[in-house]
Protein backbone atom coordinates (compact mmCIF):
# COMPACT_ATOMS: atom_id res chain seq x y z
CA UNK A 1 0.00 0.00 0.00
CA UNK A 2 1.35 3.41 -0.98
CA UNK A 3 1.48 6.30 1.46
CA UNK A 4 -0.32 8.71 -0.89
CA UNK A 5 -1.01 11.52 1.57
CA UNK A 6 1.24 12.38 4.50
CA UNK A 7 0.66 15.07 7.15
CA UNK A 8 4.34 16.08 7.16
CA UNK A 9 5.83 14.87 3.90
CA UNK A 10 2.81 15.97 1.83
CA UNK A 11 1.35 14.18 -1.19
CA UNK A 12 3.37 11.41 -2.84
CA UNK A 13 5.67 13.18 -5.36
CA UNK A 14 5.00 12.32 -8.99
CA UNK A 15 7.59 10.06 -10.57
CA UNK A 16 7.88 8.08 -13.73
CA UNK A 17 6.41 4.55 -13.63
CA UNK A 18 8.64 1.68 -14.64
CA UNK A 19 7.35 -1.86 -15.13
CA UNK A 20 9.06 -4.87 -13.63
CA UNK A 21 8.20 -8.55 -13.89
CA UNK A 22 7.87 -10.64 -10.73
CA UNK A 23 7.55 -14.40 -11.28
CA UNK A 24 6.14 -13.65 -14.72
CA UNK A 25 3.63 -11.02 -13.55
CA UNK A 26 4.06 -7.34 -14.49
CA UNK A 27 3.86 -4.82 -11.66
CA UNK A 28 4.38 -1.04 -11.64
CA UNK A 29 7.20 0.61 -9.68
CA UNK A 30 8.30 4.18 -8.98
CA UNK A 31 11.47 5.04 -10.89
CA UNK A 32 14.53 4.86 -8.63
CA UNK A 33 12.92 3.03 -5.72
CA UNK A 34 14.35 -0.25 -4.43
CA UNK A 35 12.79 -3.47 -5.72
CA UNK A 36 11.56 -4.37 -2.21
CA UNK A 37 9.46 -1.20 -1.98
CA UNK A 38 7.72 -1.93 -5.28
CA UNK A 39 6.99 -5.51 -4.19
CA UNK A 40 5.55 -4.49 -0.81
CA UNK A 41 3.45 -1.83 -2.53
CA UNK A 42 2.08 -4.60 -4.77
CA UNK A 43 1.27 -6.72 -1.70
CA UNK A 44 4.10 -9.23 -2.27
CA UNK A 45 5.64 -10.19 1.09
CA UNK A 46 7.41 -13.52 0.54
CA UNK A 47 10.69 -12.84 -1.27
CA UNK A 48 12.44 -16.17 -0.92
CA UNK A 49 12.32 -19.56 0.79
CA UNK A 50 15.17 -21.00 2.85
CA UNK A 51 17.63 -23.62 1.64
CA UNK A 52 16.96 -26.45 4.09
CA UNK A 53 13.44 -26.05 5.37
CA UNK A 54 11.84 -24.03 2.62
CA UNK A 55 10.61 -21.42 5.10
CA UNK A 56 9.39 -18.06 3.75
CA UNK A 57 11.39 -14.86 4.28
CA UNK A 58 10.81 -11.18 3.54
CA UNK A 59 12.60 -7.89 4.22
CA UNK A 60 13.85 -7.46 7.78
CA UNK A 61 16.35 -4.55 7.94
CA UNK A 62 15.62 -2.60 4.72
CA UNK A 63 19.18 -1.24 4.72
CA UNK A 64 21.13 -4.03 3.04
CA UNK A 65 22.52 -5.72 6.17
CA UNK A 66 20.52 -8.89 6.87
CA UNK A 67 20.14 -10.51 3.38
CA UNK A 68 16.64 -11.79 4.20
CA UNK A 69 15.25 -9.98 1.15
CA UNK A 70 17.47 -11.55 -1.52
CA UNK A 71 15.90 -12.65 -4.81
CA UNK A 72 17.01 -13.70 -8.25
CA UNK A 73 17.19 -10.59 -10.43
CA UNK A 74 17.75 -10.90 -14.19
CA UNK A 75 19.06 -14.42 -13.61
CA UNK A 76 21.51 -13.43 -10.84
CA UNK A 77 20.69 -14.97 -7.44
CA UNK A 78 21.16 -13.38 -3.98
CA UNK A 79 20.50 -9.78 -4.98
CA UNK A 80 19.54 -7.60 -1.97
CA UNK A 81 16.26 -6.16 -3.19
CA UNK A 82 16.03 -3.52 -0.42
CA UNK A 83 19.05 -1.64 -1.78
CA UNK A 84 18.81 -2.44 -5.50
CA UNK A 85 16.85 0.10 -7.57
CA UNK A 86 14.25 -1.04 -10.11
CA UNK A 87 14.90 -0.82 -13.83
CA UNK A 88 12.41 -1.02 -16.71
CA UNK A 89 11.84 -4.62 -17.76
CA UNK A 90 13.74 -6.14 -14.81
CA UNK A 91 12.91 -9.82 -14.29
CA UNK A 92 12.60 -10.79 -10.63
CA UNK A 93 12.04 -14.29 -9.29
CA UNK A 94 11.19 -15.57 -5.82
CA UNK A 95 14.39 -17.31 -4.80
CA UNK A 96 14.29 -20.95 -3.68
CA UNK A 97 17.12 -21.79 -1.34
CA UNK A 98 20.51 -20.55 -2.46
CA UNK A 99 19.28 -19.84 -5.98
CA UNK A 100 20.95 -20.89 -9.20
CA UNK A 101 23.55 -19.07 -11.19
CA UNK A 102 22.99 -18.81 -14.91
CA UNK A 103 24.64 -21.63 -16.91
CA UNK A 104 28.23 -20.83 -17.81
CA UNK A 105 28.76 -20.90 -21.54
Amino acid sequence: MRVEEHPILGPLPKTETVWIEVDGKKIPARAGEPIAAALLAAGIRVFRTTHRRGEPRGPFCAVGRCTDCVMTVDGVPNVRTCVTPVREGMKIETQRGLGRWPELK
Partner: peptide, 12 residues
Protein backbone atom coordinates in the same frame (compact mmCIF):
# COMPACT_ATOMS: atom_id res chain seq x y z
CA UNK B 1 13.07 -0.97 8.49
CA UNK B 2 9.40 -0.05 8.72
CA UNK B 3 10.45 3.59 9.12
CA UNK B 4 12.63 3.37 6.01
CA UNK B 5 9.73 1.96 3.98
CA UNK B 6 7.12 4.48 5.10
CA UNK B 7 9.16 7.70 5.25
CA UNK B 8 11.76 7.18 2.52
CA UNK B 9 10.03 4.88 0.05
CA UNK B 10 6.46 5.86 0.89
CA UNK B 11 5.10 2.32 1.13
CA UNK B 12 3.39 0.71 4.12
Amino acid sequence: AAQTFINLHRVL
